[in-house]
Amino acid sequence: MAFLEIQQLAKTYPASAGTSTGTSTAAKPVFEQVSFTIERGEFVCIIGHSGCGKTTILNVLAGLEQASAGIVVMDGREINGPSLDRGVVFQGHALMPWMSVADNIGFAVRSRWPAWKPAQVAQQVQKYIDLVGLRGAEHKKPSALSGGMKQRVGIARAFAIEPKMLLLDEPFGALDALTRGVIQDELLRICAATRQTVFMITHDVDEAILLADKILLMSNGPQAVIAEIVNNSMPRQRSRHSIHHDPQYYRIRNHLVDFLVHRSRQIQSGELPRPGQPLQVSPGLIADTPASTAAVASA
């Protein structure tokens, strides 16, 4: 059994009452039939357009939201609420502005290990502050930090509780390209060092290729499904500086962009068949022919 198993997940929000169209139309699920697995130590990214329910899936994994149908099992136990086993890095960093950097991380550490002595907590906090390269900023308030530094604190806070799995909700969305690259490298390094299992939402195709072992592609909502599971066949030791020299890089990238531009919409509108099961593809390994992506689409 895989480390994390998601089976037939669906989410339907109750139809808003009093709309002019009447109540005859039942509310459509935002997404449905979402099933996938994550192995221990695997880095999984999910890509899809806004409104396909990515964040809802992440919130269900975090235990912050209830799915309408389906189950999530992590490490043999069903997820039905928030837990310290899963660390979350929020989209808007969600630091407590009245606490210093060290206090923000310390708050998480003390929640994880209530019996620890202050010295132990301080040691753990310092370890993760060093890990994300924030030494010297321990006593600063979040308002005195740049966007990139704030997100590093968020990452350090999530890592510091040593969760079994890390959930990242578009953590770099608000950062400029330069800062984003630096922090991506850091995340890659930390994950490699800690063998952390990660589930991450992103809008950035390059980010997904750099970080993920497996990329889940969602069709447009409502009634979004996981249409494809793209296996990142490039060697795991990737670096932002050399990754684009790998011939696989552009095959995977083209495949992802093609999906986002065309197929994600076509599946929703019915021009393409809805896959009952997500297609497992490895576009990086397919020989470079112009028809390769088309072949996958019609497979």
Binding site: P82, L84, R86, G87, V88, F90, A94, M96, M99, S111
Partner: peptide, 29 residues
């Protein structure tokens, strides 16, 4: 109080009393 701060407290399984004094009180102060 911002929902995301409460969500942080939830994912950290913070007890109601700790949440009231360490998150909600300073946020609403």
């Amino acid at each position: 109080v911002r929902r995301e701060w409460l969500n942080v407290a939830r994912t950290l399984e913070v007890s109601p009393l700790r949440k009231a004094f360490l998150v909600i009180l300073p946020a609403a102060a």
